[in-house]
Simulated assay, not measured.
Amino acid sequence: LPEIDPEKFCVNIDRYGNTSAASVPILLDEMNRTGKLRRGDIVVLAAFGGGLSNAACVLRW
């Protein structure tokens, strides 16, 4: 997605490794606690796991 500014992407796998189903909630909590999420923000979540499982969604915070 070259048209999206890289600073808009948040990643935590470099700090925690693969935490399975907890990876996305951990990142959301980090973003919320550091003030990176504000009420009404649109958030796109994408994750992949073992066995090539994957999921994605769009939500309003």
Rank of each mutant, 00 (worst) to 15 (best):
L1Y: 13
L1R: 05
L1H: 09
L1K: 07
L1F: 14
P2Y: 09
P2I: 02
P2Q: 10
E3W: 10
I4C: 03
I4L: 02
D5Y: 01
P6G: 01
E7M: 03
E7R: 12
E7I: 09
K8E: 07
K8G: 05
K8Y: 09
F9P: 11
C10P: 00
C10W: 01
V11I: 14
V11G: 08
N12C: 06
N12I: 10
N12W: 10
N12E: 08
N12L: 12
I13K: 13
I13W: 13
I13H: 11
D14A: 10
D14L: 09
D14G: 11
Y16R: 00
Y16C: 00
Y16M: 00
G17R: 11
G17E: 09
G17L: 06
T19D: 02
S20T: 09
A21F: 11
A21W: 06
A22P: 04
A22I: 04
A22C: 05
S23W: 02
S23D: 08
V24P: 11
V24S: 11
P25H: 02
P25M: 02
I26F: 06
I26C: 07
I26G: 06
I26H: 09
L27W: 04
L27Y: 05
L28P: 07
D29I: 15
D29Q: 15
D29M: 14
D29V: 15
E30T: 03
E30L: 04
E30Q: 06
M31F: 06
M31A: 13
N32K: 11
R33T: 15
R33G: 15
R33M: 14
R33N: 15
G35Y: 03
G35E: 03
K36D: 00
K36C: 04
L37W: 03
L37E: 02
L37P: 02
L37G: 00
R38I: 07
R38V: 12
R39N: 14
G40F: 01
G40V: 00
G40C: 02
G40S: 02
D41H: 04
I42K: 10
V43L: 12
V44L: 06
V44H: 05
V44D: 00
L45K: 01
L45S: 01
L45N: 02
A46E: 10
A46G: 08
A46C: 08
F48M: 11
F48H: 03
G49E: 10
G50S: 15
G50A: 15
G50N: 11
G50K: 13
L52F: 15
S53M: 12
A55L: 00
A55V: 01
A55E: 03
A56C: 04
C57I: 06
V58R: 12
R60C: 06
R60P: 05
R60T: 07
R60Y: 03
W61Q: 06
